[in-house]
Nucleic acid binder design. Structure first.
Lengths: 105, 105
DNA sequence: TCAATAAATCATGATATATTAATAATAACT
DNA sequence: AGTTATTATTAATATATCATGATTTATTGA
């Protein structure tokens, strides 16, 4: 049989990234960055209306998972999407949401 | 500003499904079902060489999350993919893996 | 140096998850 | 009824994650 299987190690490593995305606020952050482009922490905190410490931890997790990258500019730290697959997943959700909207009316 | 934001409730609900996929063995199950089509528990257990109880629990979680469906035929229970978005994500991983392969050689 | 701002880290308790092994339930066959 | 095969559930334990608020660090400007 043709071996089209993805290696378990690859799947395990990728699973970690996916698991990080499996969180409502983190998806909100991802969407925010996709819509607004590179943004600093304060703007994200304001947009999501969540505690600063929580957002900072989410950003750090996403960064460690390779989903985001960041740079400092003077006082602010700016985050941006580093993993295009995350946007693929986000677009997949958008498509689904649009479908649900059509069904509802 | 144009409101293209996905509602937080939608993102939270979807996050649950994504989080379920964020697990190596569960991704292996998903891949197996995508490659082989509807399969029974025993075949999956054999293919993944994992404890039966663990696989059964993974299957149940994925079913509750809407990723899989199942039916019983005599003694066996057959599982199949119920959520096409999961395949979209899987294909996204395959593409990435292929890219990594190309880079390596 | 001092104050102000921005972001990261820490401490905590509460939940949730993963893993394993053992047991139970279901179905078919004799 | 008893047996076997298949799948599901349970219990126990260890680990991980979550949310919150307080504190700390880093940077800048006065």
């Amino acid at each position: 049989m043709e071996n089209r299987n993805l290696p378990p190690e690859f799947l395990a490593a990728t699973a970690e990234m996916i698991r990080i995305l499996g969180h409502g606020q983190r998806l909100q952050i991802l969407e925010y960055l996709d819509l607004h482009g590179e943004s600093n922490v304060g703007d994200i905190v304001t947009a999501l209306a969540a505690p600063q410490g929580a957002i900072s931890q989410h950003l750090n997790k996403m960064r460690l998972a390779g989903v985001l990258e960041c740079r400092r500019d003077r006082r602010e730290v700016y985050y941006r999407i580093a993993e295009e697959r995350a946007v693929t997943i986000l677009n997949c959700l958008r498509k689904k949401f649009a479908e649900l909207q059509n069904i509802k009316g």
